[in-house]
Design a protein around this nucleic acid. Structure first.
Lengths: 232, 232
DNA sequence: CGAAGCGTTGAGAGCCGTCAAACTACGTGG
DNA sequence: CCACGTAGTTTGACGGCTCTCAACGCTTCG
């Protein structure tokens, strides 16, 4: 990795507090790799070779079972993935593919574990990172088990709007097909859900979403900070 | 805590590798408390006060939303819970109640964070523990999103039988009501699912389960180590 | 221009939840 | 020891949610 590239990633929470020479150790064996759309970066069941960090672009994390497939998450810059598999040296539980082209920082799994064993600050950063993502999955599990498709969709719209500054209008960051899978429903169901949401003041035109009756939508979704809030 | 009680918990993976004086520090402020059935130990939304470790008995971890409720996990001896909330000092995402009476080790959250900041071995143990439970929730999310009720129930039976030594017969460890919630369905649905499973050689009599056609059941459930295997 | 993929819509079926009633198991108090 | 109440479980009826299959329009791209 070039010095300039290291500068781009050293401020990520995962690396920020660690000792300089350990960060150097960690990053000197790393690659910053470009990937085109559709490439499958990792495949569930395989042993972990690299810790991946999204630097640019969008990554879809998904999982297969029989002939089905579901999207677990869509990651943007700053997010790392398959950290737990790397730490425990156990097979990936999820696959990942490039949704929109970008660059991925890849750190050899062996190096991550070695530095983890040496650098206490890094170990603590990993703990915090894992605690964070753990809570994220728990929220997603609650979202799935406790809400209907309509509620999940409404809640997603409110949350996504909030992340974009509560302007009441935004563009879908990826295909509806992916959103449907992410929300745990068939594409046809999402399509019909959008139709239903018209009555709640949600206008959908292609990728453009507009919220005209926030209170009605909020009443429908019943947002809950213990499910929807990304920071709590 | 008495010395004798400390002996009972010091060998848990969470405490095994840490320095003696830090373990002492951690445990000296801890309580080993008895709780009767039905008591609600923690309530989602509240700030974390103690790290809880099950020493004896059964704990149901669940979550509420609107007038609904779902069981996230049922924990037995050796399991800790709400570790992530304690580490990050953020509100509990889940509630917990006593399913069958027992004893809980309660370590003040403040102490956990203090020792975490001091003892590198403890920090690493936390990382591993969190990585482990993280993977557990991911598997559960896949289980929910990728399988039908029938498949989840069949897979649960196979897995639970395997944990008991593949004898082909075992007793439900808790009420069917709880199992239904754990598996993500209404009690009535579980009841009907058991009826359907008769055709696959599963006999249900009260709490007694018997598997007579393992291959048929396996074909139905399509067990997947990346969903069902507790150690992978 | 044609092919391929996405999104929408319709039709139909199956899965799942709710409500209600009846039955069972269990523990408590008389 | 029995009567009773409570909670868990089962069953039926019903409706709604969600999935699948299929057809069609639209956009994109080679």
């Amino acid at each position: 990795m070039r010095q300039e590239e290291i500068e781009q990633v050293r401020h990520l929470p995962l690396f920020a507090s660690m000792e300089d020479h350990n960060r150097h150790e960690l990053l000197k064996g790393a690659f910053l790799q470009r990937f085109p759309t559709h490439v499958e970066l990792i495949r569930e069941g395989e042993p972990p070779d690299f810790l991946h960090v999204v630097v640019e672009g969008q990554i879809e994390v998904f999982s297969r079972y029989r002939d089905r497939e579901t999207t677990v998450a869509v990651l943007g810059p700053g997010a790392s993935f398959i950290l737990a598999a790397v730490v425990l040296d156990k097979p990936y539980l999820k696959s990942a593919r490039v949704l929109s082209a970008g660059r991925i920082l890849m750190i050899p799994a062996e190096t991550v574990r070695a530095v983890f064993a040496q650098d206490a600050a890094f170990a603590r950063a990993l703990t915090q990172e894992l605690a964070q993502v753990y809570r994220g999955v728990v929220k997603e599990l609650k979202n799935q088990k406790l809400r209907s498709s309509l509620e999940r969709t409404a809640a997603w719209i409110i949350r996504h709007d909030a992340e974009r500054g509560d302007t009441g209008r935004f563009e879908l960051p990826f295909d509806k097909k992916v959103l449907a899978s992410r929300l745990g429903m068939a594409p046809e169901v999402l399509s019909r859900t959008f139709v239903t949401l018209k009555a709640y003041g949600v206008k959908v035109d292609g990728r453009r979403i507009e919220i005209s009756d926030r209170s009605g939508l909020t009443k429908l979704a019943a947002p809950d900070s213990l499910i929807d809030d990304p920071v709590t």
